[in-house]
Design a protein around this nucleic acid. Sequence first.
RNA 1: GCCUCAGUAGCUCAGUCGGUAAGUCUCGAUAAAGAGCACUUCACUCGUAAUGAAGGGGUCGCGAGUUCGAUCCUCGCCUGAGGCUCCA
Length: 556
Amino acid sequence: MRILQSHADFIEFEPTEKEITSAEQAEKKKYRYENIVVLFVSVEDGDNEDLAKKAIDDVKGFLDKVKGKRIVIYPFAHLSRNLAKPNAALGIIKEMEAHAKKLKIETYRAPFGWTKALHIKIKGHPLAETAKIYTAEDSKTEVKPVLRKTKLPKVKEETLSENDHRIIGKQLDLYSFHEVGPGMVFWHNKGMTIRNALIDLWRKEQQRRDYQEINTPIVLDKTLWEISGHWDHFRENMFFTHLEDRDFALKPMNCPGAILVFKNTSRSYKDLPLRLAELGTVNRNELSGVLSGLFRLRTFTQDDAHIFVTQDQLIDEIDNVVDLIDYFYRTFGFEYHVELSTRPEKAMGSEEVWRDAESALKKALEKKKLKFKVNPGDGAFYGPKIDFHIKDSLGRTWQCATVQVDFMMPERFDLNYVGEDGKDHRPIIIHRVIYGSIERFIGILVEHYQGKFPVWLAPVQVGVLSISEDNVRYAKSVEKKLAENGIRVVADYESRTIQYKIRNSQLQKIPFAIVIGKKEEQNKTIAVRTNDGKVKYGVKLETFVKDVKKEIENLK
RNA sequence: GCCUCAGUAGCUCAGUCGGUAAGUCUCGAUAAAGAGCACUUCACUCGUAAUGAAGGGGUCGCGAGUUCGAUCCUCGCCUGAGGCUCCA
């Protein structure tokens, strides 16, 4: 419902002819009211009685404020293109009239469905004219058909490898995709557990290497992206939004945020290398045809870091980063290959600056004696990069870690640090990610381990299974003890056969199944079945807890 | 975004050459809204990969068209898969 509310010295109107066949009965004479609040009302599709009352309640408030006493409700179709059917509209208008009378407002009404001659003089005070829009909260949208659009996209299992992360993710309840979020993931608790384990490791290793962690906004003013060059070079991949006459963009990269943090204080050469890490969620408008499970998303999280270094520190720091990446990939047992990507056509900056950056990366790689392939023209628009590629289960390779050298952004953002000589110097930025995107990395991990995660990553580490109802009490005490020791445990005390429970535990790829039956209860021990089907009877709970904790500690 | 293919229950799938409300008769036997898993209830209390029974659950992706009638045919859209192109 739309209302144009006018506080008038007087209004005069005269119905001239019927506009629609269902128009109300009315006399073709002149009506005149003085000192009155006129409500020009367009009733829209979906409006209801509650809205009618709400609108009148608001008018009552206005009347009290301006010490008005009378209103005229004037049906006025020209405020909306989404008009209600005449019958419904008239009903709502009458409802408004009735409600106003109930509130003891002196109420008049112009006839519905007539063309009217109109003469009005509106008062000059600031509140004399206001426009209002009311919409029903539970509109008459048919919910059911729309509901079907939140369905999970169908994934034909026969067309995918059984080892595909999209299938395993569903079987293990790690994450899901919905039609309403193309190219976006819904993380379930179990997937989130893996994600958090990865992040914990990431934090730990970076803390050890003198990184600081920051977090910067997801939506930032367009101006920032003009400075960074994204507006010129990355625009077609960005999402924009408009608020209060300003243009904003969802960040497609984290660098400008980190740069603003750097710029926030004056920096000395003593502060460098300054390593600012950020788990940054970025949004990129990828072409719909390239989206693919966790491997290619529109919203994903980069385990980013921007390292601000001096010219002299550049090669050593690249070296540090390459070591760090290698440490991570060895932890997971990944084989990777390295590519060096050079100046693309759509690049910022002079060829000379690019040559310097490319040679810095090359030198670092040669120093490490790492073999690499050169991809001419594949660099980011602001600098060349080293990419680390991992294979998925279908043999396709995916870029995960990258190290990029950037002389450009420091220039554009006019970044400085004060050198030993007391003068300003330009730092160089190293952009780097280790996992690349947490999402893609988990996708690759799922396939790499075929869902059988090492204990430290496994969403559920231990399952406690009771054989009969008699054992539940003891089983619960075991469960509690495990949980107290920080072990991720689930229990199955249903009245099902032990075979059934074992099978479930196996299908969920839980590393350890603890079976509690009469024997265990009597001897105060547990029976431990590992994922490979081997069973050890008569194990002491304390020993088991110790062993599991050790495995977790060693990232196994 | 482009090309090809797909979408039936929470999941994995079968099925329909377009057919519906009730009654009677004849003929024939799995059915044409179905199965398995999951879920709920009941029985069972089990020793290392599936105990049994009953029940609930569907506008056959969304919208339009053709038709007396559409889950099925046609068109458009959405989402997904494979590829192209691009990226972490």
